[in-house]
Amino acid sequence: MTLLRIESLSKEFGGVHAIEDLSFVINPGTIHSIIGPNGAGKTTLFNLITGVYTPTSGRILLDDHDIAGKRPFELARLGMSRTFQNLQVFFNMTALENVMVGHHLHLDRRFLPSLFRLPAIARRDAEARAHCLELMAFVGIGRYGDADAASMPYGALKRLEIARALAARPRLLLLDEPAAGLNATESREIDEVIKKVAATGVTVVLVEHDMKMVMGISDHILALDYGRKLAEGTPAQVRANQDVVAAYLGAH
């Protein structure tokens, strides 16, 4: 059974086809990469899948249910979570609080008990704190605990978003350029984190420019250009594809 099925998906912005008639499937338990030159529509595709944009036409099926047009928070309830290429960190909060917001759906969110801080709230909060600190250690930012997010370096913030997304306990995790702006060592570390996440059974979809990372960790690659599918297959198949080579080298 497929986890996510995209059927003839299209998105237009004022006559420009950002995504055009795109179809593909994502199987559970795999690492799936989406590659393509700048402007190929990768981030648009992510925004469509996660409900940030509404498709112009086509279907997006999660567990065979059409989810096109659902809001991001509804999709989070269905087990989808993501990070952003341009960071969407809560800079007005501490690192740990950022991750705890990620755990939102699994916490006691009743209004009156929150106002009076009943013991149930305090206890679950303490558990969540411990759990989220573990997640921070898991992605390699354990030492930032109560630091203000605004004071953290870029590489740590990228990981903070991953920890926040994981705190939501997703089945499907979408990472938008997790290695962008990181040096080689940091990239390798993110590699390891992604592999560890996938090993826990989470399906990972990533958009990435770092070809070394993509070829190294992906089970399946989808190459886009001008919003259309250019090629699809295993890393070896995609690497050998002439269209992909041409698109990247700009040859015609």
Binding site: F73, A76, S81, Q88, V89, F90, H104, L105, R164, A165
Partner: peptide
Amino acid sequence: GSEVGAEVVGV
């Protein structure tokens, strides 16, 4: 902090 960041984790 970030409306879209909050939405994608279920807020």
